[in-house]
Design a protein around this nucleic acid. Structure first.
Lengths: 111, 111
DNA sequence: CATTGATACAACCGTATGGTTGTATCAATG
DNA sequence: CATTGATACAACCATACGGTTGTATCAATG
């Protein structure tokens, strides 16, 4: 699977409430790291690290605007994440369908 | 958010290729921990731990069958995970829609 | 060009995670 | 009931992670 590496990073990035919240906040794309940091009970550097994790996962980008750097949720990244989840859901659903199919058939055999 | 705790565990559980593979394999629900362990280049105990993580996240269950314990993907858990993702997608999409709406309007103003 | 505001980075700490090996439990079976 | 097969659990190790503080960079501004 070529997307395994990314899936690791994406799911790991989403496995933290602070980071999920940052993704939401960064959708409007108007807050710098400092403003974001203001919303959470932790240091500026900690939030900075969270943003870095999201960046590495391709979920947000940073755009320089004057002396600030605005954090923007990367729609492409989100779509990719969503695509991964869809793939998995398809696989899951596929297997579930085949399972229920098997079950149905075995019931027919039983009858 | 009441589901935050679960989201942490679920995303974290999915952030590992081995565990994602176990979820897929366990959908057919006929392999014990030992059989599962056979597929991966690691010890039995390591796979056992991975299964434990998935179990804690509510993604699989173990059912005793004779002397074996069969690992079964928990469809309910999967649906819950899927639900979480849907919620997030809805939020994301909502914000995206509002964003594109804003962009469209500002373009109209520009024109 | 010195200062200030905003971000980046490095070092450090405690704890969690992914892996190992070894031992204990527990159910089937001779 | 001793043995064997399958799972569970505990101790340990290395590394990653989430947090801290302190220092460095870098762009605007007086």
């Amino acid at each position: 699977m070529t997307t395994t590496f990314d899936a690791d990073h994406i799911f790991a990035a989403l496995a933290d409430a602070t980071r999920r919240d940052i993704v939401l906040r960064a959708l409007s794309g108007h807050e710098g790291v400092a403003e974001l940091a203001g919303h959470y009970p932790m240091s500026f550097a900690a939030v900075q690290k969270h943003v870095a994790v999201l960046e590495r996962a391709g979920l947000v980008t940073k755009e320089r605007t004057g002396r600030r750097k605005v954090v923007c949720t990367n729609i492409e990244g989100l779509r990719l994440a969503r695509g991964l989840l869809d793939e998995y859901e398809a696989l899951w659903r596929g297997r579930i369908d085949r399972m229920t199919d098997l079950i149905t058939r075995s019931k027919e055999i039983d009858a």
